[in-house]
Amino acid sequence: MLSSASTSSRFMPPQATEVAQNVDTLYGFLLVISLISCVLVIGGLIYFAVKYRRHTENDKTPYISHNATLEFLWSFIPFLLFMASFVWGWIVYHQLRTAPTDALEVMVRGQKWNWTFAYKNGRTSASEMFVPVGQNVRLIMGSSDVIHSFYIPAFRTKQDVVPGRYTSLWFNAEKEGDYQVFCAEYCGDQHSGMQAKIHVVSREKFEDWLGNDPYKDLPLVEVGRKVYTSRCVACHTLTDQKAVGPGWKGVFGRKEKLEGGSDITVDENYVRESILDPNAKVVLGFPRGVMPTFAGQLSEQEISGAIEFIKSLK
């Protein structure tokens, strides 16, 4: 059997949970069985192909219609292997899906195209979450628009995040580190940009982070920069280059043509309206309905910060 260590490193993501090790052990078993089956079938194929190539057009071939014993064996042995794999997979799946009752619960929200996290004490974060090492964590997840999927390769787990209902996922990270989160269910233009990081840290660091106001003593423009890097970066650049949405450099104070033909100056009111109700006034050349609303998701401080930050990009 392949040891799980040899399948990790280059060909697998890091193993950060106990369940991940169990998944890899099972995967190793399946790989070995698959390899043996392929060698038997393909090896037999090549051997026969070489040995029984045609010598003359009048070669006689034996008339072998079937062989009951052989056919029983090559039906029954695969069946047994399939059943063994199935039961083992069931056991691992049960571990993946059964959250311990003492888990730390975090609410997760997926929205085109970022992830936000809310802790019980009111601390929120976007595009990154912190959890203590060795702690059972349960994520209760919902979506504000289309289906997303919360995928952490290092934990070997994923769960679709569906609008209109909650789904959940749990893990217990055993090693400190920063782990990649992907969106695994196709959700539109910035699907591949819908990423996040899970920072697994010591309990002290986690408590510090949890109790800490992320914007404490920060000037408004720096608050805006943080909002940008966690929420806006998927669609807006800091240059004057257009991505999904307009680039922010020099946009403030500019006169823009709207869809209807009228003009508007990008001022505080327009930026605020575009954050809260993006479809109210769409600039010509940008598709309608792409930007989601951030109403109820950004605080007044964050909105003011974002306006201040855009203003600063001259």
Binding site: V23, S34, C38, F86, W90, P153, K158
Partner: peptide, 21 residues
């Protein structure tokens, strides 16, 4: 044959959670 055995790997539900999508 390769497509088939990897299909079995994907049918093993505990492993598919990682490989899905």
């Amino acid at each position: 044959t390769i497509g088939g055995v990897t299909g079995i790997i994907l049918a093993v539900i505990g492993v598919d959670v990682h490989f899905h999508d």
